[in-house]
Design a protein around this nucleic acid. Structure first.
Lengths: 175, 175
DNA sequence: CAAGATTGAAGTGTCAATCTTG
DNA sequence: CAAGATTGACACTTCAATCTTG
């Protein structure tokens, strides 16, 4: 199985390497991901003082939770960040008064994170920045059907393997 | 211009956010890039003690240069790394005896990096690891035409903006 | 002891300042 | 002063150790 023989060629020096088309797909995927990530992160930092990871956490709390609250474990499951990273980002958000942390009633080992009024306000503003950035670096460059195709291809690449923090994510989604 | 209105919807809480299809393309691109990068980096580190950035530098020297030599500026232009990062990686490679650095004859401000015999040997081995990893995480999951399509879409996203270290890259390619 | 979360140490990367040569 | 490269200080991220509660 695996890649067809034509994917690999031999350079003058004898080193086996990828054919141009395969190299373009590989390098393109890595660099496009980097560029989009970096640009959006920079936009948010310059305009609102928070990075993309912090923005995503506010977004999960503000837009994809029932009452603006999620436990740390749930956040770790959704964000493509390690448990320790989520912990540090949330601690920073709390320092800025954008979220609140409190022990969970049912099991005080868990910590419930709740977005504050100020956090919601920042989220609203930052969402506009984020959407504008996405349009600029990604969506304005593709047709609607190309967006769908990109979604399909990347999903296929990701396959079963859950994004980034695979094991932790799967565990948390089950628990 | 930009994205169609259908790309943005309004959640119960009133926050504007991406429609599922657009979110999938965005998140998919970022996470697929991260996963592929991370896996290939780990493969190389475990098997050969060098990361993906160092591997790419050896590859440029060993497979895509005329006599195994390139100036620092040329390396910076090709690798998606900052000038300072290239400097540190090359310094590390020299410590391990995989490359050699010497002042350039024509202009001793420049440094010429040359891959050593040991570096070439490591490159040969690491290339096999790298190709196997690429097959596992990327190419075995896509058909040949999907690989082409991914290359086309990511190139479109990258557009004029040169990958990562845009300005530096363009400057160096001209000089 | 197991689960949930935090923290210390270390790796990796960037920006800005610096050093050297033209 | 400008160009090429290196270095210092700092930011971000992860792994492993730790702390607390069940």
């Amino acid at each position: 199985m695996g890649m067809p023989r034509s994917a690999v060629t031999q350079s003058a020096s004898g080193v086996r390497h990828l054919s141009p088309s395969y190299a373009a797909a590989f390098l393109g995927l890595l660099r496009a991901g980097e560029v989009v990530d970096r640009e959006l992160d920079r936009d948010l930092r310059e305009a609102h003082g928070i990075g993309l990871p912090a923005f995503e956490i506010l977004l999960y709390l503000g837009a994809f939770s029932d009452h603006g609250s999620l436990r740390m474990g749930q956040l770790t499951a959704q964000a493509p960040l390690s448990q320790s990273r989520v912990s540090r980002v949330v601690a920073d958000l709390e320092r800025r008064g954008l979220v609140r942390r409190q022990a969970w009633q049912d099991d005080s080992r868990s910590v419930v994170v709740t977005i504050t009024r100020g956090g919601t306000a920042l989220l609203d503003e930052a969402s506009e920045t984020h959407l504008a950035g996405l349009d600029r670096v990604l969506f304005s460059r593709l047709t609607r059907s190309e967006v769908s195709e990109l979604a399909r291809l990347t999903a296929k690449v990701l396959g079963d393997a859950a994004p980034a923090t695979g094991a932790a994510r799967r565990r948390a989604l089950e628990g």
